[in-house]
Design a protein around this nucleic acid. Structure first.
Ligand SMILES: [Zn+2]
Ligand SMILES: [Zn+2]
Ligand SMILES: [Zn+2]
Ligand SMILES: [Zn+2]
Lengths: 141, 141
DNA sequence: AATGCATTTGATACAGTGTATCATTTTAGT
DNA sequence: ACTAAAATGATACACTGTATCAAATGCATT
């Protein structure tokens, strides 16, 4: 069988995890959402995709994907209800307005140099990063 | 009265908020902790500092400080129980090992250039940032 | 295709975290 | 000191994430 697996599903399998319905449903929910989605929204979408998937498996999968650096929980504005962000190419960057909580995404980060330096100096192997600027958006300045 | 206010307390006042016992107790708890502290730990420390401070005010203050970019909630390893990080000079950087959850702090980031570019291009005013690398620490490589 | 086992699951009941409410207290400016 | 507005603490609540465990499933091997 020459199944064409999504890259993230492949990453799951490569890490030695099984590709179950629950996990694929969560991945699909995340990918359809386009980023910055709360656990409540994931639960809702997964329920539409496959209502037999249980609550616990959704949270287990979110933890698993976080550990594999496929998603990253972040906070927007308040201390509760994290937002899960897909990390498409191993990194993600946004600006959060501390006044209106608007989120502005951007692509360039120029962090490759410092990442390489850290790997060399600290002996770590870096697979991705999240860069979060905060301040006032153009509407709130 | 020439009260010498801590810089963060000053920042609170400058933003038009009152300097109450509850807020000062939470600030003190955060500062004594040295970074990466959970809400449960904040609640415990605040209770020692001033047991009359109520639970709700602690959470209200954490939200307030987050909005002012004085602290930032982040996740270590799992999707629950955020860790609050003090942002001493407007920015904070760490590496999280996706295997053992060790946290490695580092200082240099070299993000001033891109911050200035974003301010110019997007019309925003940036006051700080959080940079989170993830990967494997030297023990786990 | 059928087998076998370790992994994963779903249901449920639970623990813990953060919040709404509102009468009372406190702050800070006059 | 006086006052209005802001903030508080107590409580009860809602919601998010988790422990448990018998049953189901993925997948490597035959
Ligand atoms: Zn804004
Ligand atoms: Zn980047
Ligand atoms: Zn490690
Ligand atoms: Zn920095």
């Amino acid at each position: 069988m020459t199944d064409s697996l999504s890259p993230r599903a492949q990453k799951l399998r490569d890490a030695g995890h099984k590709l179950t319905n629950a996990r694929l449903a969560v991945l699909q929910a995340l990918e359809e959402s386009g980023g910055h989605i709360t656990s409540a929204e994931v639960l809702g979408r997964v329920d539409e995709i496959d209502s037999s998937v249980g609550r616990a498996s959704v949270f287990r999968t979110l933890d698993l994907l976080t550990g594999l650096a496929i998603i990253r929980p972040t906070y927007i504005g308040t201390s509760m209800t994290p937002t899960y962000v897909l990390l498409p190419e191993g990194h993600h960057h946004h600006i959060i307005c501390t006044n209106c909580n608007r989120v502005i995404e951007f692509d360039e980060c120029g962090l490759e140099a410092i990442a390489a330096e850290l790997e060399h100096r600290l002996g770590v192997r870096l697979t991705g990063h999240l860069l979060e600027f905060y301040g006032l958006c153009d509407q709130c300045v």
